[in-house]
Write a protein that binds this DNA or RNA. Structure first.
Lengths: 203, 203
DNA sequence: CTTGCGTTCGACCGACCGGTCGGACGAAGG
DNA sequence: CCTTCGTCCGACCGGTCGGTCGAACGCAAG
């Protein structure tokens, strides 16, 4: 009863190792691609041998799924928190954009995997995972719709197209954000939001 | 001297086959991922057997490189043509966005490969290819800078950030454009451009 | 010391992949 | 008729990968 359990992390030695292995897998998968990365490489990254990995992990696919779980959980939690705490509907939309870009930049390796390895998901888990992403997108769309309703403004295009454009601009930062550059992830997110909010404010 | 030659396509029977094989490879690579796709699958897609593929193609990597060549050539050609023919600097920027999104939507499989298989490029060709992409990005940036200079407007953010945001929004359409949906690629591109130009016009 | 358990790994297995080889088929040219 | 050449493929090879097995090690409890 004390330590372990079902969740994704706990205090036990074994769970610590699992976390280390997952972190190593993220590094290797994002650098070389899920399929090209071998479990031997993951093991080396963590400082273990392959059979030891399999003492803690069931399959390579499980590691990939864990990445999606983490990103989806975190994305949705952040999104909900932002909507809940926002001081206005406009601020909610703005902060969703800023935070989305910032989160993406702070975890480029994680997001690289999520964006590029969808076809590697096991077929039975693919639908549920995509559905959870759709929940996040709906949250953003509703934030935009709330703001439009409240402000009386109208968008010159379909809301759904606006949301996809917005998410594209924010997500694409995973391709070009430079951690050694002059802008912090949040600053960059604010700039991206400035671009995307202009069309909203123009009403 | 008559038929064949160095270019990427010609009238000879063999070149026709090469085109068919490349098209099949694009389909399979984009659906399953370059690494996960086997040359057997490509062969099946084209209606041949693996050894026959290798009668026309040197290596699997060559097929991948051919995809990048095609997309880079086409992108740059379109970009230059747009800038050359644009009736105003604003129209140049607008049309660059519209066409970028439209081209992406019309060739989703091609672009999917380009966006997601960069790490699979042979190391010696990677730098040259990335450099050519940078040339395209520079073309867009200069179009934006020309418009700002001519109009006397200023952007509230760095031009470079604006261009990356713009390209992200346009490129991301490869993830969500629905060919069965109500909008044509160009219509969708126009909507995306509407969002991105608002901040420019507000200048 | 003995038992037991969590951890580690060398060696191995079956499957598959990129790529090759040698030959078969068929049409064109003599 | 035979030759030639482009096309096609069954069978095969070396290598790698995901995953397993059985044993060894270290350590805490009795």
């Amino acid at each position: 009863m004390a330590g372990g359990g079902a969740g994704s992390a706990a205090g036990s030695r074994a769970d610590e190792q699992r976390q280390r292995i997952l972190a190593g897998a993220v590094t290797v998968f994002s650098r070389r691609g899920y399929r090209a990365a071998s479990m031997n490489e993951v093991a080396e990254q963590v400082g273990l041998r392959k059979p030891t990995l399999y003492h803690y992990v069931r399959t390579k696919q499980d590691l990939l799924v864990a990445v999606y779980e983490e990103v989806l959980d975190e994305s949705l939690a952040r999104g909900r928190a932002i909507v809940a705490r926002a001081s206005s509907t406009r601020e909610a939309v703005r902060e969703l954009i800023v935070d989305r870009a910032a989160y993406t930049c702070e975890h480029r390796d994680l997001l690289t995997i999520c964006f590029e390895e969808e076809s590697e998901l096991p077929p039975d888990l693919r639908q549920p995972i995509l559905e959870r992403r759709r929940v996040y997108e709906r949250l953003v769309r509703e934030a935009v719709e709330d703001h439009l309703r409240e402000s009386g403004l109208t968008l010159p295009i379909a809301v759904n197209v606006y949301v996809n454009t917005l998410l594209g601009a924010a997500n694409w930062t995973y391709k070009w954000f430079d951690p050694a550059g002059p802008r912090t992830p949040r600053e960059l997110g604010e700039d991206v939001a400035t671009v995307l909010l202009a069309v909203l404010d123009a009403g």
